[in-house]
Design a protein around this nucleic acid. Structure first.
Lengths: 242, 242
DNA sequence: TAGTGGTCTAGACCACAAA
DNA sequence: TTGTGGTCTAGACCACTAG
């Protein structure tokens, strides 16, 4: 029998997910919705909501008339580009020991282009943080975050910048980060990237150029990241929409 | 008042989407769920399902206590990488006049690696189709599709290969294409790509290396595509999961 | 405080898959 | 035929926003 807080759906979801990860359903078959509902003491609707979310995450799949099943291939995907939220988390999921190094922190005036994309006035102050992420001891990701100073609500220590940017904003920012719109751009390593990421000149790299938005769809963050493809393969599930 | 078939939810969804695209809600505010429900003669649950799908597509957003709103920035994204389904469609959305050219069709034996990824026996026959997609008259995408011959159920004409591969499989294949798992890889243009895509040597390119799965999660297709980044910028919405 | 979306229930019927 | 997931209803209460 479940209690409230957070939501019953959310609890049911993590409960079922745990059972899956603990390999309780060795045959890959998940009990019928009505069984789950009576077992957990909630309505079938709640169970269906929970299963829908798990299906969307790629953890399970459903076949009408047949049943609900564990999606083993889906469980093996460690870095779904559309869900990455903390680089340290991704690296850990890949089996590396992640660490973060702050290379530079500065305050600059927004140029025209940045001002437009962040919906601020050119010349407004931006906090620019340059961070390097390492897998074990190898550099993998170089990230530049641009945060308008007006988005920062509380004083912070330099060490707080080691937090994932969404966590930093949630702690010290004026608005929470809700989602990114990201452009995926192939680039050739610049001299700076060659030295920072320890890669040969001319290595093709993947760059993610993104704007982060708040719950009410205001742009609050600009971020650019470059990935070493050999250590971190980015993966994606593509589905047809309607 | 809506009728059945397809589903009421699906009808409600496209109805609301049409109203949005026709700019019926000039202030960006969508009527309350209860109003929509009585207007369309369905239950609030059905409306909520429809709105959830639209929210997931990025067409609207909801704020508890405040209302439901049109997400104008979301409407402007023309090529969401996680939803791309036909290259011609993407190019058309970008305002180009798309066309497809078949460069080569052949049958080859599956090598070890391909056999493993497609869950077939090495040596099994594969249909290999090399297609070039043009925007107006400029080449933009070079795609290689590998389809096991055993997946093809009905005879086809060469011209049928011009169809998007999901449409081809739906028409002539044994199983429908349900989703892709795609690796995003930065590459440097090979000599073949330089000539085919009319680009300078050493241009960084984006390559999508994907396995297509059927409804019951069997791999049925291998595909590799290279994109010209200058004509087709790939974009993605990244959300936090749970 | 009024109105909105968020959660949840209990129950009905349908469509499809497998035995 | 049986059992599964898919759709839909009507109604309740809660959480939040805004005037």
């Amino acid at each position: 029998m479940l209690k409230r807080a957070p939501s019953l759906t959310e609890q049911a979801k993590s409960h079922i997910k745990q059972l899956i990860l603990a390999d309780e359903f060795a045959d890959g078959r998940i009990p019928p919705e009505t069984t789950l509902a009576t077992d957990l003491g909630v309505s079938r609707t709640t169970i269906r909501d929970a299963l829908s979310r798990l299906e969307h995450e790629g953890v399970i799949y459903r076949k009408q008339g047949a049943g609900t099943f564990v999606n083993r291939p889906g469980l093996q995907i460690k870095s779904r580009l559309d869900e990455i939220w903390s680089y340290e988390g991704v690296l850990r999921a890949h089996g590396y020991m992640p660490s973060t190094r702050i290379l530079d922190v500065s305050t600059v005036s927004a140029d025209e282009e940045t001002a437009v994309s962040l919906n601020i006035t050119p010349g407004d102050d931006l906090l620019v943080v340059k961070k390097l992420f390492l897998a074990d001891t190898e550099p993998v990701i170089l990230a530049h975050n641009h945060i308008p100073l007006c988005q920062i609500a509380a004083p912070y220590e330099e060490s707080d910048l080691l937090l994932p940017v969404y966590a930093f904003l949630s702690e010290y920012g004026r608005q929470q980060l809700s989602y990114y719109v990201s452009d995926i751009i192939p680039i050739t390593a610049s001299p700076e990237l060659v030295t920072t990421l320890h890669i040969p000149a001319q290595t093709p790299l993947l760059s993610l150029s993104e704007i982060g938005y708040s719950d009410d769809h205001q742009p609050i963050l600009k971020s650019t990241s470059c990935f070493r493809d050999d250590l971190l393969r980015l993966r994606l599930i593509r589905r047809s929409v309607q």
